[in-house]
């Protein structure tokens, strides 16, 4: 979503994005003329009159599980966003029985929160596991 019109979105997709992604961008490119939606989400940059790089993970109940907002010059880490979505999906699937410690990615150890884990995280989770 940006302040550009849907017509500009089409031009960008047709003339540049289709050269990077086969068939163009598959998902909706939304238009937020005037930044009304951006203001609602607290990402509208009043000074520049554009949206900051806001990214929101919204679960199937419509609840925001996480967000990240960067100023325009720095791009995002898509891999980290996917990791967070996968982690939130796992937590939801297990109804909170499993939690994903620092550095988790699919296949790595999860923790089962509960009285037995208190004071015992060190036995299961090593600091090296925070890094890839």
């Amino acid at each position: 979503m940006s302040i550009d019109s849907m017509f500009v979105h089409k031009m960008w997709d047709d003339h540049e994005l289709a050269k990077m992604v086969d068939g163009g961008v598959p998902f909706p490119m939304l238009s937020d003329a005037g930044g009304k939606v951006g203001k609602l989400f607290g990402v509208f940059n009043e000074g520049a009159g554009v949206e900051n790089r806001g990214r929101f993970i919204i679960d199937p109940d419509g609840v925001i599980q996480g967000y990240e907002v960067l100023t325009p010059p720095v791009g995002r880490n898509v891999q980290e966003t996917l990791r967070q979505v996968q982690a939130f999906q796992l937590v939801r699937k297990t109804k909170g029985a499993e939690a994903t410690p620092s550095g988790w990615r699919p296949g790595k150890l999860t923790l089962k929160p509960g009285p037995d884990l208190v004071g015992n995280v060190w036995k299961e989770w090593k600091t090296s596991m925070a890094f890839d």
Partner: peptide, 17 residues
């Protein structure tokens, strides 16, 4: 509702994301 949504804002078309 019922699906996971990733909502991304960006400064403008013809910039990076």
């Amino acid at each position: 509702l019922g699906k996971w949504v990733l909502l991304c804002f960006y400064p403008g078309d013809f910039t990076f994301v």
